[in-house]
Every structure is written in C-alpha cells, then in structure tokens.
C-alpha cells in the first residue's frame, strides 16, 4: 500500500511536470524552481539551526574500541577518540566511508538454530554506490549552470565518461545512481524485516530519486534534449535573468525531470533526507570520549533533592555507633 502510494505520487508529480509545463512553462521553468530552491535553503537552515538550538547536556559518545589510558596499552583512536583531531577523523570515516555500515552483520540461525552473525556488506556497498554516484551526478550538473564550465567539473566528466560506450558517452555514475537506488528499493521490498519497518517516508524519496534518475537518464541517452537551451535557462536562473523565450524549445520530458527535482528540493528539509546534515550533529559520534579528563558543561544543570550525609547519620547514627563505625556527631 505504502509502496503503491509512493509510486503513484511520484508518477503523478512527473506527469504534472511533463503534461502541464506546456500550458504554464514559466511556472514550471522559472517560478517553481526558484520557490523550490528558496524553500530548500530556508528549510535546510531552519532545520539545522533548530537542532543547533538544543543543547547537548551530556557527553554520550558511543565508544567502539579501547579508550585512552595507559600509553602502553593498545587503543582505538578513531573508534574511541580522545581529542578533537581523532574525533574529526572518526567523523570523516563515518561521513566519507560509511564506517558504521561497513561493520554491518546479518543475524541468522546457525546449524543448531542459535544465532550466528554473517558478514553483510551489500547495504554498505549499495549506499556507497548510490551516494557517490549521486554526488558525481550533481557535480556534473554544474556544467549546465556555470559558463564557462569549471575545470574540476570537466575533469569529473572525463573520469566518469572514461569508457567510450555509446553516444553521448556513457557515464558510469548514471548506472551507479540507478543501480544503487534499485538495490536500496529492492532491499526494502524483499527483505521482510526492512519491509516491515518501512514507511511511505522511505518509499517516496526512493521513488522520487529513481524518477529523477530515470528521467535524467532518458534525457541524456534516449530522447535527447536541447542541452544548449537548457543551459541557457539554467544559467539565466542562477543569475536571476531567466529567459522566458527559451522555455518553449525545451522538451516536456525535461520539465518532468525538473519538476521532480523541485519536489525533491521542497521535500528535502522536511524529511529524513536531512540525515545529510544530521550525521554531522550526532552526539554519540561527534564528541571525544574525554569526559573524565575534561569536564563537560550542561547548560541547564539544576539542583536536585538529595539525601545528605547528615540526614543519613540522623537515621542510622545509633546503629553505626553500636558497631563501632565512626560518626560525625558522637
């Protein structure tokens, strides 16, 4: 049900962009993109600041290895960091290499039906392939927004299109993006546990990204679009001089693609996709485990009702004296 709703929603959105853009090209080509991007930026900042506003009262690092103690004992610097530099590296490993996912295992019944833990790297692999392909695809799109195209973008394009397959030349990440998404979707659909925990909130962005990926793939490799006109539109948009005249020469498929991107931008700040920012703020990961050496301050630390020694001795003093325990009030 959730799957179908997600699929239908994305299909309808795509068709809206595809079908209605002809009637209102300015709306779909200029107004909505501006609105979406503005909403994306504002929403993103709002969400991050909302997190930043909340204090981190305690240093609750998840320690995944030996702590810093005697210098003659082995320790895990990047799984149990003791200072800012080590913490930074831990975060880099997490953000760039998905280190925690790489540890993943799969619990399965062993020969005697007791649990055993199989190595499971496909989630990591799928995630890495998808995320890095996505990054490269995004960076490649800079060629459409900036004139002249920056050298680093050209270099990425060259590397990505190293293998001479087809015309226009086939990008490895075009495949990686879609393959990664298909894997993640298939996992959600066919792994009973993951299927059980999945919400529409999970299916919708997957379908949305797939819609964007497939329509983009289609635009590049199958039904070609007028790249020059699209670049003229895109550069016009980013310099706030959008040209309305150019809109009519762009294929409706492009508007389908663009509209899905706009939906993604608008949806982004209000969804789980904000994990891109959240991962940096995770208190169990972004703090050093040095609480015993450096005191962490809780801004809202408040006094609580205690049971003082005086009260204690009042109750038990006589008993203590009877067995010869020292007391304050003899």
């Amino acid at each position: 049900m959730k799957v179908i709703i997600g699929l239908i929603a994305v299909s309808v959105l795509f068709l809206a962009g595809y079908g209605l853009s002809g009637a209102a090209p300015y709306l779909f080509g200029v107004i909505i993109p501006y609105a979406a991007f503005a909403l994306f930026l504002a929403g993103f900042v709002y969400r991050v600041l909302a997190w930043a506003k909340v204090p981190v009262p305690f240093r609750i690092t998840t320690t995944c290895g030996g702590h810093k103690t005697h210098d003659w004992l082995p320790r895990s610097k990047y799984d149990n960091p003791s200072n800012a530099v080590e913490t930074f590296i831990r975060m880099l490993l997490e953000v760039l290499c998905f280190r925690s996912l790489l540890k993943n295992t799969k619990t399965q019944p062993g020969d005697d039906n007791k649990p055993v833990y199989a190595t499971e790297i496909f989630l990591w692999l799928g995630a890495i392939v998808f995320h890095y392909s996505m990054l490269v695809v995004l960076l490649r799109h800079i060629r459409l927004f900036v004139q002249p195209t920056p050298a680093f973008v050209t270099m990425i394009e060259r590397a990505d299109g190293f293998f001479q397959v087809g015309v226009p030349v086939f990008y490895l990440t075009s495949f990686g993006l879609i393959a990664g998404l298909v894997y993640l979707l298939a996992r959600r659909l066919f792994n009973p546990q993951v299927r059980y925990i999945s919400l529409l909130n999970d299916y919708f962005p997957l379908f949305l990204l797939l819609g964007i990926g497939i329509s983009g793939f289609w635009l590049r490799y199958i039904s070609k679009a007028d790249v020059i006109a699209i670049k003229e539109l895109a550069t016009g948009l980013v310099t706030f001089t959008p040209s309305a005249a150019i809109l009519s020469s762009i294929s409706p498929l492009f508007f389908g693609h663009l509209f899905l991107v706009c939906v993604l931008l608008m949806y982004f700040p209000f969804s789980k996709l904000m994990h891109i920012a959240g991962v940096f703020l995770s208190p169990t990961r972004n703090m050093a485990n040095n609480n015993r050496a450096v005191r962490h301050i809780n801004p809202w630390n408040y006094p609580v009702k205690l049971h003082t020694y005086e009260e204690y001795e009042e109750e038990f003093g006589e008993l203590m004296k009877a067995v010869g325990l020292p007391v304050e009030k003899e």
Binding site: V45, A52, I142, V146, Q147, P150, T241, A277
Partner: peptide
C-alpha cells in the same frame, strides 16, 4: 561550528549563483 558548517554547505550549493554573480551568465553560442 554548526554555523560554519552551514555556511560552507550554503556556499557549496549556491556555487552556481555566486559564481554567476561574479562571472555573469555567459552568452549562449
């Protein structure tokens, strides 16, 4: 730190915008 990170992020995603503001939209061929 968070605000610094945000600024870097915003600078990155608005790269085409400020780059366009500096260098202009460029003429279509």
């Amino acid at each position: 730190k968070i605000i610094l990170g945000l600024v870097v992020f915003l600078a990155a995603v608005t790269f085409p915008v400020w780059r366009g503001a500096i260098a202009g939209a460029g003429e279509p061929p």
